[in-house]
Simulated scan of single mutants.
Amino acid sequence: MNVMANKGNSAAQVAIATVKRAPGSKPSWILVAKTAEEIRRSGKWSPDYSSPTEWLEAVAEASGYTVNTIRRFIASLNFLEGRDEKTRKLVFDPLSGGGSLTMASIELIKRMHDISPAEANRVLDEYVKDELTVREIRDRYDALINYAQPKAMMIVGNPPYSSTERLPTPDAGKLGLRRAHQDKKVLTEIIRSRIADLSEADGMKVFSDRYEFDFVSPDAVAVAQREFSISFVDGFEMKKLGEKTPPGFFKKAIAEIVFSATFFRRYWLFLEGTEADARALTSALNVLEATSVGVALVDLEHKQIRIHREPSALPQPDRHALAKSAILAQGIPA
């Protein structure tokens, strides 16, 4: 799909009209995702809308879906666009029937890809060719989870990793505290530079060491403020992996991450470690279905991150209101 402006109508206006004219009670999720993402990436939401978020709100109103649902659509679309050329043609060619792919199935296959890319690619290929039902995809997903779970528990229970170290380390000496403070400063700079991608929202304010919470201690938070209230809060945590780990420490860290994530709309884990570390954590989070947690490898020296897993849904259970209330009680700097 290529949204073009015509006869005085902007590209954004044409896109909204396309969504509204789509057949059926609601337009297909692929149409909505492609329309919303093309305008968002190109920046053609301006001047009709003040921000990408306002643009998504307009698409939501035109399509009948919620903004959060449309973000899930876009995440699934981006996953499909990352497949090989043959698969992309089957998915996006109008004559192939790819438009009949259900969102629930693609999300399942996307989760499978985090655990076993080879199996996910096989399932996607069979599904696009109409050789699998949604129920059969769920069965394949459950089988993969059952296969991966013992391995994930081995990783969590007795991994070849270091002790995970939060920022700052409470028992560090003066040199350690100084380094921890510098690491947190760099981490905050990275979050601020990438906040539009990490939170998929505009106007976010990022804070570290500004707020205290009763049950969790994120290294940083990003706050979306709307007038005199708070729309949502995202949390960020960094863990540094060394060479050795006390027994059970990694297992404890996973439990802490999953618990902490329930207090925030999205919860990002920044990991200073290896690709293997990131894959292991991603696998464990998939087994636990911690869909609100994102994982990224961080390079503090070069101020870069590499995203391994993106949040795809709201936390369950959802304790987000407690974080918003805590921030409101402590005040938001102008």
Rank of each mutant, 00 (worst) to 15 (best):
M1F: 12
A11V: 08
A12D: 04
A15Y: 01
S28Q: 06
S28L: 08
I30Q: 09
S50Y: 08
L56H: 02
E57M: 07
A60K: 01
G64V: 07
A75C: 00
L80N: 04
T87M: 13
L90M: 14
F92Y: 15
P94A: 14
P94M: 15
G98A: 04
E107H: 13
H113K: 04
D114H: 13
S116C: 10
S116V: 01
P117S: 09
E126F: 06
Y127T: 02
Y127R: 01
L132P: 02
R138Q: 11
Y141H: 14
D142L: 10
I145G: 05
I145L: 13
N146P: 00
Y147R: 15
Y147T: 15
Y147V: 15
R166S: 11
R179G: 12
A180K: 03
H181Q: 12
D183N: 13
T188N: 10
T188I: 05
I191L: 02
R192L: 05
F207D: 13
D209V: 11
D209C: 12
Y211T: 06
E212R: 11
V223Q: 06
E227S: 10
E227L: 06
F232K: 08
V233F: 13
G235F: 00
K240G: 04
K244W: 00
P247V: 07
G248V: 04
K251H: 14
I254E: 08
I254C: 11
V258I: 15
S260K: 13
F263P: 08
Y267D: 10
L271G: 01
E272M: 00
R279G: 09
L288K: 09
T291H: 13
L297D: 04
D299S: 11
D299C: 12
L314V: 13
L314G: 03
P315Y: 03
Q316I: 11
H320P: 00
